[in-house]
Design a protein around this nucleic acid. Sequence first.
DNA 1: GCCCAGGAGATGT
DNA 2: ACATCTCATGGG
Length: 274
Amino acid sequence: MELGGAYVDLRLTLVDSAQCFRWVEADRAFGAVFSGKPVWLFEGARGIVLDGGDCAFFRNYLDLDRDYDALFEKYRCYPAAKTAFAQFPGLRRLNQPPWETLISFILSANNNVSRIRSLVMKLSQALGERIDTPRGALYAFPTPQALAGADETALRALGVGYRAPFLIKTAEKVAGGFSLEALSQMPYAEAHKALVQLPGVGDKVADCVLLLGCAHARAFPVDVWVERLLRNWFGVREKNRRALSAIARETFGDDGGIVQMYLFHAARIGAIAL
DNA sequence: GCCCAGGAGATGT
DNA sequence: ACATCTCATGGG
């Protein structure tokens, strides 16, 4: 089934941009499990082709109904942003399920991208349902119940280290009724305040979850790369990251988080100087 | 062997 | 409120 819409660079969007850590590549297609069903995405002659899964869901997942050309126009007055837009055509902000975004970014704290991906894969293989497809085996992301019931020692054996109790306690809260779905309906500030109540979730992880899992495009995560970038390209003087994020939200406004994604990736791979 | 990684939590001031 | 320490692990 063809999704249509603008050009999407699947490898960049699903893997290399480090928004998501659970897609596997096989035979020029990208596979994962959603709602218990295997899904493969690949680039066809007339746009993205979806094999399995719901068309409307993946149109939203890939943010296909957003006008990125209009967004580029809106923010091209910032030289760093203009450069990043030109470097990465086909990069989209993913709208992921909030649960897997939450757990993935708890794992991201003080960690590197290749290891985050390795941990997400190991978690899925250990605690998620296996589904065999013609292109190979896929594993579902562990459910809140599965993770809440996991043994801390077993999680540590997978390599998650000191984050093991964070994962279990947060999973217990979600399994116990903490509504992640409600976050997308709240104002940004209220949703952020609710998220940082969860163990292992600070300001930065909360912003990643809001931006990539809760449709809050104004959320502006500030990590080491974005901090340097804001100081050197935008002359921001604030000392701590909370203040930096607040200034960035005021500066960039409603779609600032999407700009952040381009800036982060450009900074991380060295495409723009810091 | 050392430094770093899409930081967060605990503690001390 | 703000600065400083510690926290596992393995990739580069």
